[in-house]
Amino acid sequence: MNIFRGIADFSHLAAIIILLHKIWKSRSCAGISGKSQILFAIVFTTRYLDLLTSFISLYNTSMKVIYISCSYATVYLIYMKFRATYDGNHDSFRVEFLVVPVGGLAVLINHDFALLEILWTFSIYLESVAILPQLFMISKTGEAETITTHYLFCLGLYRALYLFNWIWRFYFEGFFDMIAIVAGLVQTVLYCDFFYLYVTKVLKGKKLSLPA
């Protein structure tokens, strides 16, 4: 594993833990899109079905299990335990507009027309756009808690670092996967606007708020 991959995985883990911790500590999921979290739970579930078919390493298995469990725990906290604090009115992104086209694309453009392969492709495509309900919610309310922005930054950083990981793997291992690369690029681009706000506002100690 190269350095980019390593930092990326821990950045991803940090994002997941930051979010869980924030909800647990504040006993509230205000400002968090439950829809994005459901999409991430679907992403992990459909991608890590390989837990049942192939063993890579203890690290690999543990991370996959942690990602899946944390994402389900987050969904549970939002929709069950702290449901009263869930801001459903502002979480109004129509997820069917993401899931249906992404599902169609996964069936049409994949490496192999097999169930597990299509589900893997679906999870890659879905992950690239799964954050949209959350970004939509922030644009709707015009602001985000600072801790939420740290979560988003770690999540965006993770995908940006995977791009470097793929460049590395292409040069040193001759490996590349066009589906993952294109989806990863799309995903990273979606965070660019947010990265800009994070650097110019949050890192200077200001709250992230958008002009009305």
């Binding site: 890579i56 690999n60 996959k64 990602y67 490996f175």
Partner: peptide, 10 residues
């Protein structure tokens, strides 16, 4: 076809 790298990356 076998896609080992796929199971490796998270």
């Amino acid at each position: 076809r076998e896609f080992t790298y796929r199971h490796d990356e998270l």
